[in-house]
Design a protein around this nucleic acid. Structure first.
Lengths: 204, 204
DNA sequence: AAATAATTTATTGTCGACAAAAAACAGCGT
DNA sequence: ACGCTGTTTTTTGTCGACAATAAATTATTT
């Protein structure tokens, strides 16, 4: 049969988390916005239980900040020194991933990565920048996951979220796809050094 | 009035999390142990709600691993390459903290850090190694928190937990306190270079 | 008897209601 | 008018019950 695209099944909580992340990163929920559990429960048509779970999760990811008995609100930007640290750490994780992957990418995997980049180009053409951000992240996540599984994704993700929260810059169209292409090309060529350089150039 | 020791108020969930972390790190819950929500709820005398929150939290910290509809179990050790990465990243965070702190420690803060080291010595003398681990961590956390607040503690903590999970070595009595004393002494002297070196030597 | 299918049991996910805490408000005195 | 105090309202934390899913057991067929 024809190779069908992997459709990922997401739990209810994951879908809500995804939606809230988008709201926050897109700026629909600016920093210091207080999240009301009941309100969110109504919005998604379920009870407060799952909502609370998601809030806890996003808090651990650094997008929200919550105090006991006082609810959660959208976190604000980091001061420059912390920002620098986060970039440095994220770069190290991604370079580590590149080194782990080295020459282990299968044809199948390369095809999937290329499909992601094609989607990225489409989103850029449509000027759907929230979608661009999501796809951008999914490209990196694919590599991180390949290298270190959920374990590595879990420690990597908070850095990405915090960086996105800090400056929601919209990378210029051509540059964005190019940067990722360079990473993939270097990986295909088995050039770890070049791939690492390309990754570092993309994380900023 | 006399300077009274800061007694920290912990939420119910934080106390349970603390207890479970101890259970896991001490080896009472070996890797792959499945955690039963109802069982835990009974043990702590409360309902499943708060327990679920704690499980989610420890999952984000990397101590537990949970699958949808299948519950959570204690995570297993990392492969060596990931282990090396984690050590490297944790060192960078702690060196960053040292650099941030530089000469900003107040008399009060130095006193508190010395009190922590005194407690550490006491726990070592009592051969209460679970307590030793906790105090060891609290020393580091104090510095991390001073440098970057909860924000930094949140990204730092998972590394500590994972490292503790990997090798539950019991540092030899004298060495443990000495290593931390060296860090504190260097900080008191305002010698960032030396303090960084001491921190790196302690993280392994 | 072994393997598969159906049934039962156990465990997690979700919900609505209540308790406790915080925030908002009103009343009082200075 | 301002600040404090007590009350009301809102919001979060907790609970027990039910629904849905996974695991275990029993029954059935080959």
């Amino acid at each position: 049969m024809a190779t069908s695209r992997t459709t990922k099944i997401l739990s209810v909580k994951d879908q809500i988390a995804e939606q809230l992340r988008t709201d926050i990163i897109s700026g629909a929920f600016p920093p210091n916005t207080k999240l009301n559990e009941t309100e969110l429960a109504n919005r998604f048509g379920l009870s407060r239980g799952p909502i609370r779970d998601v809030i806890l999760q996003l808090t651990k990811e650094g997008l929200l900040i919550s105090k006991n008995n006082c609810g959660a609100s959208v976190n604000s930007v980091l001061d420059p020194s912390m920002q620098k640290l986060m970039i440095k750490l994220r770069r190290e994780i991604e370079v580590f991933a590149i080194e782990q992957i080295n020459d282990t990418l299968s044809e199948q995997e390369i095809t999937e990565l290329e499909a992601i980049l094609a989607d990225l180009q489409k989103a850029l053409d449509a000027e759907d920048y929230a979608e661009v951000t999501k796809i951008d992240i999914s490209f990196h996540r694919y590599l991180i996951n390949k290298a270190g599984g959920d374990e590595l994704v879990n420690i990597w993700y908070p850095y990405v979220m915090r960086m996105r929260l800090n400056y929601k810059r919209i990378s210029s169209s051509s540059q964005c796809v190019d940067e990722h292409s360079r990473i993939l090309d270097a990986l295909k060529a088995g050039d770890v050094k070049l791939a690492s350089k390309a990754v570092k150039a993309n994380i900023k």
